[in-house]
Design a protein around this nucleic acid. Structure first.
Length: 205
DNA sequence: CATATGATTCCA
DNA sequence: GGAATCATATGA
């Protein structure tokens, strides 16, 4: 027995940087079932199984923050892949995103919901991007963190979703035709998804 | 400098 | 249905 190695629990290898070096739509789907781990300063690591994501695809995508070009806010989004892009929305909620593809592309995946799998209070709710980030202890302080290493990283899926739902993204009605793209993905059998599936696109007149 | 606006959540 | 609440982006 390797006593030296056993003093530190061997963790599964985090998802490699190459995992994120793909189009956000591919990564968004691939992230379903993956486990996000946050090794907080105190307590056991917080873990959750990702069950809902959205893809944002660069400057051409009018729903994507990259549409405004390189600013202080979009610096991480337009930076290299495999980094945490965390921003404040509506003046009160932090949203956790994963940068994708490559530096300068502005691709990212928003994590919208998860199932608690460890280190979280019983009954913790991780449905909705604001709640997810808050429950996981993620804030703008994590913006720019490389996600391939401690304290915040992703693990391969223990259980991939049996059925993947697809729908338009939430809250991006201002983006015109881009709002109709079905770039939201979720585990159709998870009770922790932030809102019920929609087969039709809501079109307020 | 002033102001409009959200990748939301909670309450009435 | 509407408020809460503020960094960012944009225009004067």
């Amino acid at each position: 027995m390797l006593s030296a190695a056993s003093s530190v629990a061997p963790l599964a290898h985090p998802l490699p940087r190459a995992f994120f070096a793909r189009d956000a739509r591919v990564v968004a789907r691939a992230l379903l079932g993956c486990v996000l781990v946050h090794e907080c300063a105190t307590g056991e690591p917080r873990r959750s199984r990702i069950v809902e994501t959205e893809a944002y695809c660069g400057p051409k995508d009018l729903a994507c923050h990259a549409r405004v070009g390189l600013t202080k806010r979009t610096r991480t989004l337009l930076g290299p892949e495999a980094h945490a892009y965390v921003f404040l929305v509506y003046g009160m909620h932090d949203c956790f995103n994963v940068t994708c593809l490559a530096e300068g592309e502005g691709h990212a995946v928003l994590v919208r919901a998860g199932e608690p799998t460890g280190g979280l209070e019983a009954g913790a709710r991780l449905d909705g991007p604001g709640r997810f980030a808050r429950a996981m202890g993620i804030s703008r302080a994590h913006d720019g963190h490389e996600l391939t290493r401690s304290p915040l990283y992703l693990l391969p899926p223990a259980a991939r979703p049996a059925r993947v739902g697809v729908s338009p993204r939430v809250g991006v009605g201002y983006a015109g035709d881009w709002a109709e793209r079905r770039w939201r993905f979720f585990d159709a059998d998870s009770p922790c998804v932030s809102r019920p599936p929609r087969s039709a696109i809501g079109r307020p007149r």
